[in-house]
Design a protein around this nucleic acid. Structure first.
Length: 1087
RNA sequence: GCGCCCGUAGCUCAGUUGGUUAGAGUGCAUGCUUGACAUGCAUGAGGUCGCUGGUUCGAGUCCAGCCGGGCGCACCA
């Protein structure tokens, strides 16, 4: 008897097999050893690196599941499948979290603690969350090569960042410029467009007027009206703009107005793009330093006679500076000044009115405060066409667009290519500087140009010729320089970029009065390099270092791949092998699996930097998976209170169940709606979450008592997890879960029990001998054997097709249906008699039945073995557990494998040491037999019909019934050959079967297309009920007949539809007519 | 304003290039504690495929318009 528990115990399997896989090095992906004659082709997946901001959520779980599935599938197919793990420092997000925490808990700002201390605190945060993230991923079963784990701030990544920056700077692709950025006055940094969100606020819409002045600057008594939602920006106005075709104002173009607030005189200009005749008064104030449209207008006017100035009136903290031209406002917050400015304008009768208006206002996602458009010095990467100083033509955006246009990079689903192409098509320069402390510091040292500074650069090997500074020959270049235009103070700035690995040079520059730029790089600058940086680029001489801690875990492995793996002679084989290359001779493959919201920010930039640095695309496929929403259609997030921790789900349902369920969600079209609930801590009932739960907070009326839930089943009352406050300590708290994961749990348990049944019957027991390996030939197979092998081959093929298109939902559906509805419901049930050693009809018990049992065992094991392998990528812990248990008694299995003659269907092979590295099933197409499947369906239909009768007449399951069937002779012969299955599966003894069979009096009847069945019930039969049933059935068939007849009498259908379709309809009609005849006969008989 | 996705059973979703009578899980009803599994088995009820029009012999599927939901981009004096 087996020691397998009746229910699958996921926690035990998870604890056992993950460390096993790890210590046996099964996750490791290494380049082929030199001289390897049959190298495994590389398959590369680069993880979309999670931020170390916090723990992982369902979106990550979905993302990780998809990647692990593909990695495990490819690994079994024989690829050296690398899944590269790592995390992102996520500059602004992480710094904001730590700063907020510091403020809340200690009342400190970053300026209180200083740069170094803040960065140290963030490192501590990073250590904590990186650990948490990695453990979450591992508990899901992520088969990453953990030895290769990277962090975007580690040395390997830092080298790549430094070198890329240096390269781009030397090529003139990186430049410094003034730009309008979204300025977060609280964090005092620029925030990217994707880090701001719109929120409607109650605002005002003021109308003012400026007095016109004459050439001498005297008021003429005329005015021009305009409106604004931000009156304080009047201090920074440099023009008033009208539409050139606006007849109301054409006469005023070129005249000047006076800003009453500071006396500045500014021109009235014409710009058709900025001023809309239909809006407001038709005239608009122009504040280039604080409004994107005005800034665009300013740029359009540059170099024209109507060129206007640009005045930045804001300090970084959001107060007005001296540029505003009125000391009264200096140092005061912009919102305070707004009020004062309105009053001042009113005092000089230039304020004309105000109305309330809802105003969409950009807010910083990190500090939740309104952002100001703000002019500041920033670093940019040029995205459009560019010629390097060496004369090379570069167009970064175009190169990335071309890669997708010519299908070197392919999107799945294809429609996402347009998101990518549309965005890149704008070729907007990429702002890469951030006014933060957490990140890669910009490797630029600068100093005002002076003879001493130039002299120092000459000593470092620079040539200075007509304002251009260059450094030595290409081979040993490590410095690059540029000179900026004179700024407001009239001084030119020398900008020196130092390549990685020259601390002495940095020191020398520092000593000579050069200062390093205080800003850090945009997070996406480092993550853009992820695909090649993690593989060690730009070091082409050594393999990238491995994580010593992770290597130490693999204690069972012989030392070989030490942390210093590789040597200079071989070069960087990891990079050469795993970074994709086009036109691959070695069959390499790669895919990026991600969510749609970072197609532009990340995917596009990886392609672009990959092409720039490596001259090769970073991945061949991009799979974009759905997003997970809550039951109300909102995206899940911790702050909304609808975010589920995957680890909670894994604890409740098991990792396999979570993976399987998640994979079943991952289709091509829809986002996933995942209603969540709270698991009652006492009885485990799941209470659906309402929107009220999401927002509930302790109320003052209840004296600060925390909201609770009462379980409808056990009536217990509990607090629950929420982002709004912490539950009281030491009380049971309802965790957030989702009942939809029962889908996966039930499936895992079903498969577990199917395997349990199989294992029990494969071992020696009261029913006979245990499994023995031996070839099985075609003539030894029973009908159900041939059927299940036919189905198995089809299913394996379909799973491959689905996975190669990243349609995980289709793959899981196919496997579930096969496992549950075919393997369990039919195949296992049908072979039970053979496994029991029952003698088949016309067979004498004894030797014959022992042989029958042995063959059933061999086929059963072959199917189970394949199924375990097919499911391994989906439910790896379960499958490994089964694999290893099967190996205990069946180290050699009848692996499906056809021989040349096609006679030997199964021939035993030694099983792989672990399921994770077993060969992916590749089954003969010849097994697929549609004719056989059709015959089998007829058998199934008959059995269902008998069961149906049993259910209707409430016949006890144990009592046998008699079955008579009328059918044509060939169908009858078929039925008779499987007669014992009627008994086995429906407790129906086939009394008679043939063309001449008559319906006995007092029978329940059923009709199938090709046969009629009668079950004599004697007194039991309820004639009236039976009549009703048959009449209803007849009615249904008459409808179908009418439908078919209508079609066939339609001249154009018959002439225009394909012949096959017409023939099919004719066939259907004929079958239906036959069936109707049978039913009518039955009805006549009953009446 | 431009673009993309979605609307199919009470709920969550499948439905390949248009082709017989639209499927699954869950929930519901009825009956089953038979030796793999009650996280299970059997049987059943449940749908005007968002609406309107068009193309076609034939539309859940293709086209147009509308209604409803979601997302992205732009704009918002």
């Amino acid at each position: 008897m087996t020691d397998l528990p009746k229910q699958y115990e996921p926690q035990a399997a998870q604890e056992k097999w993950f460390p096993y896989w790890e210590t046996h090095g099964h996750f490791n992906a290494d380049p082929p050893a030199p001289g390897d004659e049959h190298p495994r082709p590389p398959h590369t997946i680069m993880i979309p690196l999670p931020n170390v901001t916090g723990a992982l959520h369902m979106g990550h779980a979905l993302n990780g599941t998809c990647q692990d599935l593909i990695t495990r599938w490819r690994r079994m197919q024989g690829y050296a499948a690398l899944w590269m793990p790592g995390t992102d420092h996520a500059g602004i997000a992480t710094q904001a979290v730590v700063e907020r925490r510091m403020k809340e808990e200690e009342g400190l700002t970053r300026h209180d603690v200083g740069r170094e201390a803040l960065v140290n605190r963030i490192w501590l945060w990073k250590e904590t969350y990186e650990k948490r993230i990695v453990s979450q991923q591992k508990s899901l079963g992520a088969s990453c090569d953990w030895r290769r784990i990277r962090f975007t701030l580690d040395d390997v990544c830092a080298k790549a960042v430094r070198h890329t920056f240096f390269k781009m700077f030397s090529d003139g692709l990186i430049f410094r410029g003034k730009r309008l950025v979204n300025w977060d006055t609280m964090l005092q940094t620029a925030v990217a467009d994707d880090e701001v969100y719109d929120e409607e606020i109650d605002g005002h819409f003021w109308t003012f007027r400026y007095p016109l002045v004459d050439d001498q600057g005297r008021d003429t008594g005329e005015f021009i009206q305009f409106s604004t939602t931000r009156p304080e920006t009047m201090l920074g106005d440099t023009a008033v703009c009208v539409n050139p075709t606006d007849e109301r104002y054409t006469a005023l173009i070129g005249r000047k107005v006076r800003i009453p607030l500071n006396g500045r005189r500014i021109p009235i200009i014409a710009d058709g793009l900025l001023a809309d005749k239909e809006l407001g008064t038709g005239a608009v104030k122009v504040t280039p330093a604080h409004d994107p449209n005005d800034y665009a207008c300013y740029q359009r006017q540059l170099g024209t006679p109507t060129e206007i100035g640009i005045i930045n009136i804001l300090s970084p903290d959001g107060t007005i500076n001296a540029e505003g031209g009125n000391d009264k406002y200096v140092g005061k917050d912009r919102y305070v000044v707004r009020e004062q400015v309105v009053e001042a304008m009113a005092a000089v009768e230039c304020f004309l009115g105000v109305e309330d208006r809802k105003i969409p206002l950009k807010h910083s996602d990190r500090s939740k405060s309104p952002v100001e458009p703000y002019l500041s010095d920033q670093w940019f990467v040029k995205m459009g066409p560019h010629t390097t100083p060496a004369g090379r033509e570069i167009d970064l955006a175009q190169s990335a667009m071309d890669a997708v246009k010519d299908n070197r990079v392919r999107f799945y689903p294809a429609r996402y290519a347009s998101t990518y192409l549309d965005w890149l098509g704008e070729k907007r320069d990429w702002c890469i500087s951030r006014q933060l402390w957490w990140g890669h510091r910009i490797p630029i040292w600068s100093r005002v140009e002076s003879p001493e500074a130039l002299q120092l650069l000459r000593e470092m090997g620079a040539t200075v010729e007509s304002g251009r500074i260059t450094f030595g020959p290409d081979e040993d270049r490590y410095l690059s320089a540029a000179v900026t235009l004179p700024d407001q103070t009239g001084n030119s700035q020398l900008l020196i970029c130092v390549d990685d690995g020259h601390p002495d040079v940095e020191q020398a520059l520092q000593a000579a009065g050069f200062e390093q730029d205080p800003d850090v790089l945009d997070t996406w600058f480092s993550s853009a390099l992820w695909p090649h940086a993690t593989l060690g680029w730009p070091d082409f001489d050594h393999n990238p270092p491995l994580d010593p801690h992770e290597v130490a875990r693999q204690s069972d492995l012989p030392p070989g791949d030490s942390p210093e793996a590789g040597n200079a002679n071989d070069g960087n084989r990891v990079l050469a092998n795993f970074y994709p290359h086009e036109s691959p001779a070695d069959g390499n493959h790669s895919v990026l699996i991600t969510s749609r919201d970072i197609i532009t920010l990340w995917v596009a930039r990886m392609v672009l930097t990959g092409l720039y640095n490596m001259d090769e695309i970073p991945f061949r496929h991009v799979h974009v998976h759905p997003k997970i929403l809550d039951g109300f259609g909102q995206t899940m997030s911790k702050s909304k209170g609808n975010g589920v921790d995957p680890v909670d789900l894994i604890e409740k349902y098991g990792a396999d169940a979570v993976r399987f369920t998640i994979a079943s969600f991952a289709g091509e079209t829809q986002d996933v709606r995942l209603p969540v609930g709270y698991a009652c801590p006492s009885c485990d009932t799941v209470i659906p979450q309402t929107q009220k739960h999401q927002t509930a907070k302790p109320s003052l009326e209840s004296g600060g008592a925390k909201p609770t839930i009462t379980c409808p089943k056990c009536k217990a009352t509990f607090q629950y997890t929420t982002p709004n406050y912490d539950p009281d300590p030491d009380v049971p708290v309802a965790r957030m879960v989702s009942e939809r994961f029962e889908y996966g749990r039930n499936f895992c348990n079903k498969f577990w029990n199917a395997a349990r049944f199989a294992i029990m019957n494969l071992q020696a027991g009261p029913n006979g001998a245990g499994y023995s390996p031996a070839p099985v030939t075609a003539d030894q197979l029973a009908l159900e054997d041939r059927w299940i092998l036919s189905r198995l081959s089809t299913v394996a093929q379909q799973v491959d097709e689905y996975l190669s298109r990243y349609q995980f939902d289709g793959a899981t559906r196919t496997l579930r249906d096969f496992t549950w509805n075919e393997f369990c419901d039919w195949y296992l049930e049908m072979i039970k008699p053979r496994l029991r050693g029952d003698s088949a009809p016309g067979e004498s018990p004894g030797e014959q039945s022992a042989e029958t049992r042995a063959i059933a065992q061999r086929v059963l094991l072959a199917v189970l073995d394949s199924l375990v392998r097919l499911l391994q990528p989906f439910t790896p812990f379960l499958c490994e557990e089964l694999w290893q248990r099967i190996a205990e008694f069946a180290p050699e299995r009848a692996l499906p494998r056809g021989d040349e003659a096609g006679q030997t269907i199964l021939s035993p092979q030694p099983a792989a040491q672990a399921c994770i590295i077993a060969a992916w099933p590749s089954l003969p197409r010849e097994w697929q037999d549609t004719h056989l499947e059709r015959r089998f369906e007829r058998l199934q239909e008959t059995i269902v019909a008998v069961r149906n009768v049993r259910a209707i007449y409430n016949l006890p399951p144990g009592t046998p019934v008699k079955l008579l069937m009328r059918a044509t002779s060939d169908v009858a012969a078929d039925m008779q050959s499987v007669a014992f299955q009627f008994d086995n599966l429906a407790k129906a003894v086939l009394e008679a079967c043939g063309a001449e069979v008559e319906r006995p009096k007092g029978s329940a009847s059923f009709t199938l297309g090709e046969a009629d069945g009668y079950i004599p019930l004697a007194d039991l039969v309820d004639t009236e009920a039976e009549l009703d049933r048959q009449r209803a059935e007849a009615e249904k068939i008459r409808k179908h007949i009418a439908g078919s007849e209508a079609k066939l009498s339609n001249e154009s259908f018959v002439s225009k539809a394909p012949e096959k379709v017409v023939a099919d309809v004719r066939q259907t009609l004929e079958n239906n007519r036959k069936q109707l005849e049978s039913i009518e006969a039955i009805i006549r008989d009953l009446e």
